[in-house]
Amino acid sequence: MIEVKDITKKFGRKQVLRGVTFTAAKGEITCLIGINGVGKTTILNAIMALTPINSGQILIDGAKINKKSYEKITFIPDAITMLPQMTIGQSMQFMQDFYESWNQERATELLGFFKLKPEEKISSLSKGNTAKVNLLLGLALDVDYLLMDEPFSGIDIFSREQIAEVFTSHLVEDRGVIITTHEINDIEHLIDQVILLDDGIVVKAFNSEEIRENEGKSVVDVMREVYQQ
């Protein structure tokens, strides 16, 4: 379980996070929603110790993040994390060289699923294919937790469908997934927990299936209520 406890974060004078608290369980897809600039990416960066927080605490399975954690939890930012001059094959080799949790079999499977060629250079890839390579590099790690920042933003509809398919497959099964998005429509049926963020706090956290069952509302209905007050 990933526990985010009352974290705050200031950028200069701007208070981006004012005490954010939520948990993301293993085997569930947790979705951080909010308009742009609300601090979604900052939260993911903070979980991965890629940005310091001013106060609060983040625990992964009860412990603070350390170097070994990166074999258990990984982050797929919204831009590629490899050098543009590298080929897809070289990027995969790099991952294999450095991560014990790298699963070459799964990587090859993903390569086929996304129809990517290992000899292609990252700099020559389309936006959709770059996003797929980025996803591949994260998904092929045998990690318990997977963080994804806006995996659907700015890419074509067919790539989006392919990526959405990943969420319903064995590739994320039994893992804890946190994704951020400002566009819920594509994935409303795919997510378990919804965390609505606004003005640096969690304004509402709920289970999407429960809100449909108990209140007869869609996730978008709830967002409308919360954000248009």
Partner: peptide, 17 residues
């Protein structure tokens, strides 16, 4: 359950449910 989730494009936990 997993095949169903994949076919219907729904969350595996929902299929399970």
């Amino acid at each position: 359950r997993r095949e169903l989730a994949n076919q219907l494009k729904i969350n595996p936990n929902t299929a399970q449910r």
